[in-house]
Design a protein around this nucleic acid. Structure first.
Length: 203
DNA sequence: GGCTCGATCTTG
DNA sequence: AAGATCGAGCCC
């Protein structure tokens, strides 16, 4: 049973991720996050919200504390997962970007359900719960493993908005940089911007 | 060894 | 507005 066009399930290559992290972040919107496990329905969601973590200088990034056991994957091969536990109870999924040695990654914050997702996926912790992802997926190769990102439905730049990242108030000037990217108006974005007054007027 | 805090989410 | 819940990172 084909529920999505075949082309949308083509893998993104390693090269895709070996580019500047903000560029990769924007280009990831509209792509599909796919999880295929034996004995389970395929899970497919369209990326609608991501955040860029752009290197060791980025005070909001775990990598700002250097190369440690936890952050090691960020320094490694692009296209692999960096999965970590936050607040003792939620897993968060990133995909590593740029060259080996550059600790950069994109946090996947929300997906729009396409197929097989039964739980809410509008938030980094919630989407890992919806896919059933945990720390065992750390370093999974997202260009080839059962957990992967595929071509999906690429989005034009005009429908992408940027804002400061969520939950990083401690990061001084880095807290304000517009490194969160989302599809304008998409219902599955975790923290939609307040509607403008104008938009609330009856027509 | 102990302390603090977090790239979150839910409930009140 | 505050609590859940625990490992990472840092200091002793």
């Amino acid at each position: 049973m084909i529920l999505v066009p075949d082309r949308s399930l083509e893998l993104l290559s390693r090269d895709f991720y070996e580019r500047p992290t903000t560029e990769v972040s924007r280009d990831l919107l509209g792509r599909y996050l796919v999880l295929q496990r034996p004995g389970e329905a395929d899970h497919i969601g369209k990326l609608v919200e991501v955040e860029a973590y752009v290197g060791a200088e980025d005070r909001a990034s775990h990598a700002s504390r250097g190369h440690t056991r936890r952050t090691a994957p960020m320094f490694e091969e692009a296209g692999r997962a960096y999965v970590y536990l936050i607040y003792g109870m939620y897993w968060c999924l990133n995909v590593v970007t740029e060259e080996v040695g550059q600790p950069c990654a994109v946090l996947i914050r929300a997906v729009e359900p396409v197929q097989g997702l039964t739980l809410a996926s509008n938030g980094p912790g919630k989407l890992c719960r919806a896919y059933g992802l945990d720390g065992t997926w750390n370093r999974a190769d997202m260009t080839s493993s059962p957990l992967r990102i595929t071509a999906g439905e690429p989005v034009d730049q005009a429908s992408i908005a940027a804002s400061p990242r969520v939950g990083v108030d401690y990061a001084a000037e880095w807290a304000e940089k517009p490194l969160r990217f989302f599809i304008t108006g998409n219902r599955h974005v975790s923290r939609p911007p307040k509607p403008k007054r104008q938009d609330l007027l009856p027509r």
